[in-house]
């Protein structure tokens, strides 16, 4: 077990965004967290990565608690993420974006930086090489020198993934990684997610709305609704779960559907 979340609670001024959520993520698995809009999925990611502080609950990652850590410390522990509304460093180049992702793995000494020691140059060389390898891995070979904001939308998502991978994570959290993609692009993205797991051994968790992606790639699915976990299981189990269908379509719709069936 790589990640274990117990009884996580977070509210914003009286609104319970996440209430009493417990779930586990297996090492080297690909899992998805799904749920209707406003179900608390992104808040859950923000709690995991230290951007929000949980009101209560426990977050165990690889045997250590993530509670109370700052986002950069969480990243250093091996949890990397992407953002729903792509947050690249827009005016840095694509390559520099990925290089920033390596920050937490670097040995940064002021003296080395100012004196340009051999060690410093070697490290810079290595960082650059690794960043460009990662760009190649996500399919953006040769685009390193472009300014991030000038890159097409779909490629920006890939840069975010490369940037997250640059930190050598054990777990990568992808927040709606295929939003706005057409079926072909989604297919490519799914392949990429599989390769992340297969080639790097990184555990992948995604928030996703596209059921084709969710069902096609996840080995395990957790379903949130109104901040609560309402179901978990394999794709087949989730598809058959009436509470999940209800959460997505609403009780009325389910009843209508049932009536129509009768």
């Amino acid at each position: 077990m790589l990640l274990e979340v117990r009884n996580l609670v977070k509210s914003f001024g009286g609104i319970h965004a996440v209430r009493d959520v417990s779930l586990t993520i297996e090492r080297s698995s690909i899992s998805a967290i799904i749920g209707p809009n406003g179900a608390g999925k992104t808040t859950f990611f923000n709690l995991l990565t230290g951007i929000y502080k949980p009101d209560s609950g426990e977050l165990m990652f690889d045997g250590k608690s993530l509670k109370g850590l700052r986002p950069d410390q969480v990243m250093k522990m091996g949890v990397a993420r992407t953002f729903q509304n792509i947050r690249l460093f827009h005016n840095m180049t694509v390559l520099e974006n990925v290089m920033v992702g390596e920050h937490s793995r670097l040995r940064i000494s002021l003296a080395d930086t100012l004196l340009r020691t051999a060690g410093f140059s070697k490290q810079e060389q290595r960082v650059r090489q690794k960043a460009s390898d990662l760009l190649k891995f996500v399919g953006l070979a040769g685009k390193g020198d472009e300014t991030a904001k000038n890159v097409p939308y779909g490629d920006q998502r890939r840069i975010e993934i490369a940037r997250a991978l640059a930190s050598d994570p054990k777990l990568i959290l992808l927040d709606e990684p295929t939003a706005g993609m057409n079926p072909n692009e989604s297919e490519d993205a799914m392949n990429l997610f599989r390769r992340i797991r297969d080639e790097f051994g990184v555990t992948v968790v995604l928030i996703e709305h596209d059921m084709k992606v969710v069902m096609g790639i996840s080995e395990h699915i957790d379903v949130l609704d109104y901040g609560q976990k309402i179901a978990e299981g394999t794709p087949a189990q989730i598809r058959a779960n009436p509470r999940v269908v209800e959460a997505y379509l609403g009780r009325r719709a389910v009843e209508d559907h049932a009536e129509a069936a009768e």
């Binding site: 914003f12 001024g13 609104i15 965004a17 992104t42 808040t43 923000n46 929000y52």
Partner: peptide, 8 residues
């Protein structure tokens, strides 16, 4: 001022 953690 109220200290409100607004939901994003």
């Amino acid at each position: 001022g109220e200290r409100v953690d607004e939901k994003v």
